[in-house]
């Protein structure tokens, strides 16, 4: 980040290469649209470049990146009232038979629908916890809240998901 702050674009390129998948995945999981995820991920890196001279390494860079991604995702979701509008990526890759694909597709669609129905903060907490493997402290930094609040957010999100996916959980 020191090199980036001094205007070193090759250092910026390395930073992008190292973290672009995390940024992209989190934004895509939350927004459900490749175009929106690309916009958000790109804007996040440009903001990092713009504010590199003010960066304070109080948390890991990855957490800092998630914090910016989170803010941008919330802003975009508020503006566009985002709902998933793209079909889920190819399921056939994991399943050999057409029947299997159909069942998997229905299940995945139900799970995705349940996740999409969560309030923004709960949804982002779920994305960061179960897809990006962040700890409570890191999620708290990304969501600009406390560890305890993250614990409550995740507990509420799980309760909501269990309620919506009750049938699938019994199978």
């Amino acid at each position: 980040m020191l090199a980036v702050a001094s205007g070193d674009l090759s250092a910026f390129g390395q930073l992008v290469n190292r973290h672009q998948t995390s940024a992209w995945n989190a934004a895509y999981r939350f927004l459900g649209s490749a175009a929106d995820a690309e916009d958000v991920a790109q804007e996040a890196f440009l903001r990092i470049l713009d504010s590199a001279d003010r960066y304070q390494p109080t948390a890991s860079f990855r957490t800092y990146l998630y914090r910016i991604i989170t803010r941008l995702c919330f802003d975009l979701a508020r503006r566009k009232r985002v709902r998933r509008h793209e079909p889920l990526p190819d399921l056939a890759a994991n399943c050999p038979s057409p029947e299997g694909v159909s069942i998997l597709g229905q299940r995945a669609a139900a799970v995705q629908q349940a996740v999409d129905a969560l309030p923004a903060a709960q949804k982002m907490a779920v994305v960061l916890r179960y897809y990006e493997d962040l700890g409570y402290r890191e999620i708290a930094v990304a969501l600009k809240t406390t560890d305890k609040a993250v614990e409550r957010l995740l507990a509420r999100a799980r309760a909501d998901l269990e309620h919506r996916l009750g049938r699938l959980l019994e199978e």
Partner: peptide, 30 residues
């Protein structure tokens, strides 16, 4: 529940040329 969540398909790969495009935009801004 966690298995159901993590069983969702992976997001598509980062778009081709994402980092190149980003570097070009950064260069223009600079």
């Amino acid at each position: 529940l966690v298995n159901l969540l993590t069983g969702l398909p992976q997001p598509p790969a980062v778009p081709e040329g994402f980092s190149d495009h980003l570097r070009a935009v950064a260069r223009e801004r600079q």
